[in-house]
Design a protein around this nucleic acid. Structure first.
Lengths: 115, 115
DNA sequence: ACTTTCTAGAACAGAAAGGTTATAGAGTCG
DNA sequence: CGACTCTATAACCTTTCTGTTCTAGAAAGT
């Protein structure tokens, strides 16, 4: 899987284009061409972003004809969440708000992040 | 607060030294000198890491005599968690495990992360 | 005030990140 | 097989990051 987990995962998440790619992938698998379309960067640039995401274990890739499909692999996101959760007690006051948010999102498809 | 939130926050978390500093700060406020001690990097290097963390809103700073104390400010961590939570449904199967983990950590002081 | 202590900043170096264009390569399909 | 489609790689450039050493500056204590 990923090389150094947290380093690589947080590093991958630090880029807005990569986060947008992940968000796009929550709508389903996508080819490189489909991922290039919404952005104003070149195809090679997207290919490299995908490589970074793959290295972080955030996506997996399969093939369909000549195209390569990217799939969201959320396990690293879960691990990042676990790490962050270790600091839970330092924001107790807003923890309840988070609980509410999580609960709300559970039944609300639109609650998904977009950036 | 922070400049571009997620970009800067995830960027700050991508460095192991900075994550270690945050972990250290969960044990209480600390001076720059105290934060330099455990690492094999120079004091200016730590000062710059602190600057990055401060810019991300992850720490705040006060003064005590000639020293400057760093304090953990976990609000950005909460926001990062909220973003990650948007992908919750993509790891439903491990979600329960996370719940268990969170519950366990709630009553277990030693459950805190160390890196 | 003077000295000491603690932290920040300047200047520099090397590595890594992110983007571009041009080109190679892998896989399909007629 | 041959042509075409889709994606990856190479080569290059610029900017940002991380670290260093040396020095300046701010606050406290004597």
């Amino acid at each position: 899987m990923a090389v150094d987990q947290l380093d690589v995962v947080f590093g991958a998440l630090a880029d807005p284009t990569r986060r947008a790619i992940l968000t796009r992938l929550t709508h389903g698998e996508a080819t490189v061409a489909e991922l290039v379309a919404p952005f104003e960067v070149s195809q090679p640039a997207i290919s490299r972003h995908l490589k970074v995401l793959e290295r972080a274990g955030l996506i997996s890739r399969t093939r369909r004809a000549t195209a390569r499909l990217s799939h969201l692999e959320a396990e690293p996101l879960r691990q990042a969440t676990v790490w962050l959760a270790g600091y839970r007690e330092y924001w107790e006051e807003s923890y309840e708000r988070l609980d509410e948010l999580l609960a709300a999102m559970q039944d609300d498809e639109t609650g998904r992040n977009t950036s």
